Simulated assay, not measured.
Amino acid sequence: MSKELTYLNFILLNIGHAVHNADWNWRNVCSPFIRVHLVESGTASLIREDKTYELKKNHLYLTPAYTNHGYKCEGHLSLHYIHIYEEVGSQTSIFDLIDAPVEIKADPLIIRLIKRLAGINPERKLPHFDPWSYDNLPTLVRNIARQKAVPLGYEMEAQGIIKQVLSRFLLLATDKNLHIDKRILQSLHYIRTHLHKPISVDALAAAGFLTKDHFIRLFKKEIGSTPGKYINEKKIEKAQRMMMTKDISIKDLAYGLGFGNNAYFNRFFKKQTGENPGNYKKRIRLLASGDIPK
């Protein structure tokens, strides 16, 4: 498993304790952040990819970002919840590289650490448990901006506890996409870790000892997209994340993602998102400040 995972950073969005009584029933939840649940007592189900997991006392449950899932609760349930935003930076997402277990038993230390994290972040409790009330762009941007203002000591402690929690899942994780052609896996790893640079399809093909045409056909067969389209989509996704977490000029953003032509970046960003990067950045900044335009 890649050691680059060690350098990933996380932003605490929400943490708290919830008691449900047949009122935790949601379908088609798909969030841009990681969810971890620690079950304290009661019964409920987590549904992921048509598989149902019956929640157990003193067990942890992991749902990566952008994973469609649902919950079913017909009685009493007491649990702790943590919502974590993965700040990818120049690296790649954990869950692009590994398949982690959904359920693991929580050891006593992890239970204490989760309670400690909740104790030092009382303001991070959810006011409502309906996902549609907090699982939206304005709330996400505000939570990210709020965490950036946390004192360094608490921020370091939160990072440490979050990594401790996720480490328990990583110990049982396996490398992702082992069925994919090794030459394409190699190119995916390079793309995901070099989004800050220009990426040549010719160079990717040569690294796999393939002709360019053969490489493009094989990449499309394995990934469902041409390498050029995949590269640019990942760059635009990273641009959106960067605009959420830092104040950066559009020009610096374009060059920092390996777009030699600023105008090309603007055109491709608008094609991907339906909005030019300048307007997108302005809207994100307004959301972060809480000044939402009518």
Rank of each mutant, 00 (worst) to 15 (best):
D135N: 15
P127E: 09
N262D: 13
Q159R: 05
P127H: 08
I180V: 15
A205D: 01
I236C: 11
M243Y: 02
N262I: 13
A158D: 14
R241K: 10
Q159D: 06
S225N: 04
L140N: 05
K246E: 14
R168C: 12
S187E: 01
V201M: 02
E233S: 13
I120C: 09
K221W: 05
G224W: 08
N232M: 12
G260L: 15
D130Q: 13
D213N: 10
L195S: 04
I184F: 04
D247Q: 09
T193Y: 00
F219S: 02
K163F: 07
K125A: 15
L253Y: 03
I184H: 02
Y154I: 06
D247R: 11
A158L: 04
G258T: 14
S187Q: 02
E123R: 12
P138Y: 11
T193C: 00
F259R: 08
L126G: 14
K235P: 10
K212I: 07
Y134E: 06
Y230C: 04
L171Y: 05
L137P: 01
R192C: 01
A149M: 12
F215L: 06
F259S: 04
E157A: 14
F259L: 11
P151H: 10
L185A: 10
E155D: 12
R168S: 15
E157V: 14
F129R: 13
A203D: 14
L178H: 11
L171A: 09
G260I: 15
T193N: 00
F209Y: 08
G228T: 14
G160V: 02
R241M: 07
Y230S: 05
N232P: 02
H196R: 03
I248Y: 05
I191C: 05
F169D: 04
I191F: 00
Y255C: 02
A254N: 06
E233A: 13
L171G: 07
E233I: 12
Q240S: 06
W132V: 15
Y134P: 03
L137D: 06
K238A: 12
T139H: 14
G153W: 02
L195V: 06
K238N: 11
